[in-house]
Amino acid sequence: MNTFPRIAARAMPRPARHALLGLTLALGSVLPAHADLFADNDARRAILELRQQVAQLQQAQQQQAQQIQQVRSSLLDLNGQIEQVKGDVAQLRGQQDTTVRQLNQDVAKVVASQKDLSQRLAPLEPVSVQIDGKPFTVQPAEKAAYEQAMAAFRGSQFDAAASGFKAFIEQYPASPYIAGAQYWEGNSLFALQRYKDAITAFQAMIDDHADNAHAPQAMLGLANCQVELRQLHAARLTLEHLIKRFPNSEAARTAHDRLKKLK
C-alpha cells in the first residue's frame, strides 16, 4: 500500500488538507458524470447509424418495389404483345387456309378443264400405228374408219366391209392404210361375187403399191376373178407375172398349182 499520499497529507497544514479533500470530492463527483455523458453520445451515434441504415434499407426496398412493378408492367405489356401476335398468327393461318382452299379449287378447275379439253382434242390428235411392220402417224378418225371396215370383213359382213373400204379410199387417198384398204376391198367384192369391181380394186392396189406386202396376194385375187369371169388367158398371164415377180412368195406357189389346172 502506498503511504506517500497519507504522509504528504499529514505534512500539509490543516487548511491545505481541507482544500485538497474538497478538490478530491469534487473530482470524484465530476468524473462519473462525464463518463455517463460519453456513453450517451455513443448510444445516440449508434442509434443514428441504425436509423440511417434502416432508411437506406427502406429506400432500397422502395426502389426494388418500383423495379418489380416496372418488371410486372413490362411482363403485362409483353403478354399483351404475345396475345396480339397469337391473334395475328391465327388470322394469317385462317387467311392461308382460305387461300390454299381457293388455290386447290382453282387447280381442280384447271385440271378438269384440261381433261375436258384433252378429251375433246383426242379425236383430233395424230396417233402412231404399225402398218406392215413400219411406223406411221394417222388421224384417230382415219384409224377408226379402217378398223371398222376390217371388223366388218372379219365378221363376214362383206357388203358393209366393201362399202367401208370404198368410203375410206375416197376420204383418205394418201393414208398409209390405203394399200390394205384396196386389197381388202377387192376381197370383200370377190366374196360378194362382184368380180369386175374386185378386179378394179385389185388392179388399183397392184398398180399403186407394187412393192406392198399384199401385192402377191392381190395378183392372185385378180387371177381368181379372171377365172370366175372365164377370162382364162388373162388369168394365166396374171399368174405367170405373179410367179416371175414374186417367185419366193406363198402366192407364187399357189399360182403354180393354178396354172397346172388351167392348162
Score class of each variant (00 low, 15 high):
Ile82Ser: 08
Asp159Phe: 13
Ala55Lys: 12
Pro140Thr: 02
Ala112Ile: 04
Arg194Trp: 06
Pro32Val: 04
Phe153Asn: 11
Ser29Asp: 00
Asp132Phe: 09
Arg72Glu: 15
Pro140Phe: 07
Gln59Phe: 07
Val129Tyr: 06
Gln52Cys: 01
Lys134Leu: 07
Arg245Cys: 10
Gly133His: 01
Leu92Lys: 00
Gln67Asn: 09
Ala144Asn: 14
Gln84Phe: 03
Pro176Gly: 13
Gln58Ala: 11
Glu142Asp: 05
Asn224Met: 03
Ala223Val: 02
Glu240Lys: 09
Asp106Ser: 12
Gln53Asn: 11
Leu25Asn: 05
Ile82Ala: 12
Ala65Asn: 15
Ile7Ser: 13
Ser175Glu: 04
Pro123Glu: 07
Arg10Gly: 04
Arg6Trp: 09
Leu189Ala: 10
Tyr146His: 10
Gln148Trp: 02
Asp257Phe: 01
Arg6Pro: 01
Phe246Cys: 04
Met150Thr: 12
Asp132Ala: 15
Leu242Thr: 03
Glu125Ala: 08
Lys134Asn: 10
Ala60Asn: 10
Ala235Phe: 05
Lys166Pro: 10
Gln81Asp: 08
Ala179His: 03
Phe158Glu: 05
Arg44Lys: 11
Pro5Leu: 08
Pro216Gln: 09
Ala151Tyr: 10
Ala11Thr: 01
Met150Ala: 15
Gln114Thr: 12
Ala210Leu: 00
Trp184His: 11
Phe136Met: 07
Gly155Thr: 03
Gln91Gly: 01
Arg120Lys: 01
Ala8Lys: 07
Ala65Tyr: 13
Gly80Trp: 02
Gln69Thr: 12
Arg51Tyr: 10
Glu125Lys: 13
Tyr195Cys: 04
Leu220Arg: 04
Lys134Val: 10
Leu220Gly: 00
Tyr183Asn: 12
Asp208Ala: 02
Pro247Glu: 02
Val227Glu: 08
Leu27Pro: 03
Ile68Asn: 14
Arg236Phe: 04
Arg194Tyr: 07
Arg236Pro: 00
Ala162Gly: 15
Ala162Glu: 11
Gln91Met: 03
Leu239Phe: 00
Glu49His: 08
Gln59Pro: 01
Gln84Ser: 05
Pro173Gly: 12
Asp197Met: 09
Leu92Thr: 00
Asp106Ile: 01
Asn248His: 07
Ala90His: 04
Lys196Leu: 04
Ala181Cys: 08
Gln148Lys: 15
Gln105Val: 04
Glu49Asn: 04
Ile7Tyr: 10
Leu92Cys: 08
Thr99Ala: 15
Ala141Cys: 11
Ala234Asn: 05
Ser163Pro: 12
Pro13Ala: 15
Lys263Ile: 05
Asp106Trp: 12
Lys115Tyr: 00
Gly94Thr: 05
Met150Trp: 15
Ala223Gly: 05
Gln61Cys: 04
Ala90Gln: 10
His241Met: 03
Val129Met: 06
Ser188Ile: 00
Leu20Trp: 05
Asp257Arg: 03
His233Tyr: 01
Pro135Phe: 02
Arg194Glu: 06
Glu142Tyr: 02
Gly180Ala: 07
Thr99Gly: 11
Tyr183Gln: 13
Asp159Tyr: 13
Leu124Met: 15
Gln66Asn: 14
Ala149Val: 01
